[in-house]
Simulated assay, not measured.
Amino acid sequence: MESFEALQWIVDWLGNLREESDSFFEQALLWFAALYIETKIWVAEMAWSVASTIVDSFQIGNMVGSAFGGVNSTAMSYINYFKLVDCINVLLNAATTRFILSMVGW
């Protein structure tokens, strides 16, 4: 009778081992997925920072703002109302970020 109980204990342990290993692999996969996502976010933040620095150092926003200097006052009020200069600056930042990300290998 004791050998049957020992055999049953071994079978139960092997069954639990399979469930525990599945849980371990699920947890490891979740951890690696979270690490991968965190790394991607960090690289994107770094690329945005580099792109913003590049755009600021070339003073592209000021050039865009001065390009609208010859526009009449009515058109300039619409440009300021819709924040067209800020929009162009964000698009330039995005394009520069994309360039930096392509250099990183994205």
Rank of each mutant, 00 (worst) to 15 (best):
L91E: 11
E5C: 02
Q8H: 02
N93A: 06
V43Y: 03
V71N: 02
L84V: 15
A33V: 02
M63Y: 08
A33Q: 09
V64I: 15
L14S: 11
A6K: 15
N89G: 02
G65A: 14
A6V: 01
N80M: 05
V104P: 01
S52H: 07
I100Y: 03
E2K: 13
L101R: 14
E2V: 12
S66A: 08
G70A: 10
M76P: 00
W48L: 08
K83F: 01
F58H: 11
V11P: 01
G61F: 03
S21V: 14
E45G: 09
Q8N: 11
A51V: 10
A47E: 06
N62F: 02
D56C: 09
M103G: 04
A51I: 06
A94V: 10
A75N: 12
T74C: 00
S57G: 05
A75G: 00
W9L: 07
N16T: 11
W48K: 15
N72W: 00
L91K: 14
L7A: 13
E2P: 04
V85T: 12
L17C: 08
A94G: 08
A44T: 11
L101Q: 09
I10P: 00
Y36I: 02
I88S: 07
A75S: 11
E26G: 14
I10V: 12
I100P: 01
L91Y: 06
A33C: 02
T96D: 00
A28I: 05
R18K: 12
I10N: 08
R98W: 00
L84H: 04
S52P: 00
A6L: 14
T97Q: 11
Q8L: 06
A94W: 06
L35P: 00
F68P: 00
L91Q: 12
V85S: 04
T39W: 03
D56P: 05
A28Y: 04
T96Q: 05
G70W: 06
W13G: 03
G65L: 12
Q59K: 15
T53H: 07
N93Y: 01
L92E: 01
L84N: 01
F99W: 10
T74G: 00
D12L: 11
L7I: 06
I54A: 07
L35E: 10
D22F: 09
T96E: 01
E38I: 05
I10C: 03
N72I: 07
S77E: 12
K83T: 02
F68N: 03
V71S: 03
I88N: 03
